[in-house]
């Protein structure tokens, strides 16, 4: 009888080893992801991916460089600075929540062990507001884009460095959930994020060059001519999901937060250069 148990235990152990051996680690994912682009665009410097589609589209790049001479997101940065410095009704300011100052985008998104969730910059800003008796800002449109533009501009040059703490398995699970989201087909049109921005990056969809996912997170928020304003990464997620005819998820809800966690991790090592300007 004991023997049977031992064999069973051994079998179970072999199975679990087999399962873990199959799944790749975040480090392996990162390497495979970045290698894919190196192979596809051998002439593009890895650091240039922070420029999105313009890293691989020379014609678009010329127009974009002309736009960047008079950055359309500048007024948003200025308004954001005012927001940062204006005290809440209780006399405190954002600085009381973030004592290291506005140059802090490189710290987001991060795993918060206490809360047991991924915390994004926008979420942290709203938590700060609520802790000080202020109404949270709407996540997609409006003033949130001003303060995020200011913080992004102050954080330029910081390196993307998302950590997945090894001492909390829930952090790895959040990363895995984000990864699963990225590779899952969705909506009536049946596209995963990866179909456009990995598998077909650099190809032309009608007249648009599909941007590489590597570097996607570095330049947000972006002023998009199509929007006529600055918008956050989660607004863009929403738009992408709608385009594939899937019902979008809540901005800064669990799905998109984990997606941001995975996607930002994939750009680890790239400098932050937001806000950006896009078509």
């Amino acid at each position: 009888m004991k023997k049977v148990f031992r064999t069973l235990a051994l079998l179970a152990l072999t199975c679990s080893i087999g399962a873990t051996a199959q799944a790749s680690t975040p480090e392996e994912d990162l390497k495979a992801f970045q290698d894919f682009y190196k192979k596809r665009f051998p002439n593009v410097e890895t650091s240039d991916y922070v420029n999105g589609a313009y890293s691989i589209d020379p014609v678009g790049r010329e127009n974009w460089e002309a736009i960047e001479e008079f950055p359309p997101y500048e007024p948003f940065i200025d308004d954001g600075m005012t927001m940062w410095e204006t005290p809440f009704a209780n006399g405190k300011t954002y600085k009381d929540c973030f004592p290291d100052g506005p140059a802090m985008k490189g710290k987001f998104p991060h795993w918060d062990k206490e809360k047991g969730m991924v915390v994004t910059l926008e979420l942290a800003l709203n938590q700060c507001r609520e802790a000080n008796g202020e109404k949270p800002l709407k996540y997609k449109k409006g003033p949130i884009n001003n303060i995020v533009s200011y913080i992004a501009s102050e954080s330029r040059g910081q390196l993307t460095n998302v950590e997945i703490p090894k001492d909390d398995p829930r952090a790895l699970q959040a990363y895995e959930d984000g990864k699963k989201f990225y590779y899952t087909r969705r909506g009536q049109l049946n596209f995963a994020c990866a179909h456009c921005h990995l598998q077909n990056a650099g190809m032309i969809l009608r007249t648009e060059v599909l941007s590489p996912a590597l570097g996607h997170t570095t330049h947000f928020p972006v002023y998009r001519s199509k929007w006529g304003t600055v918008g956050t990464l989660h607004r863009r997620f929403t738009g992408c999901n709608k385009q594939v005819r899937a019902k979008p998820f809540k901005a800064h809800g669990e799905e998109y937060r984990n997606l941001e966690y995975f996607l930002t991790y994939m750009s680890n090592g790239l400098p932050l250069n937001g806000p950006g300007a896009r078509k």
Binding site: N200, M203, I204, L205, R206, T207, L210
Partner: peptide, 16 residues
Amino acid sequence: CLACHNIPGGQAPGNI
């Protein structure tokens, strides 16, 4: 179809 395929007679096709 033109979003991704070139088709004779079609304007501004994609190349996916």
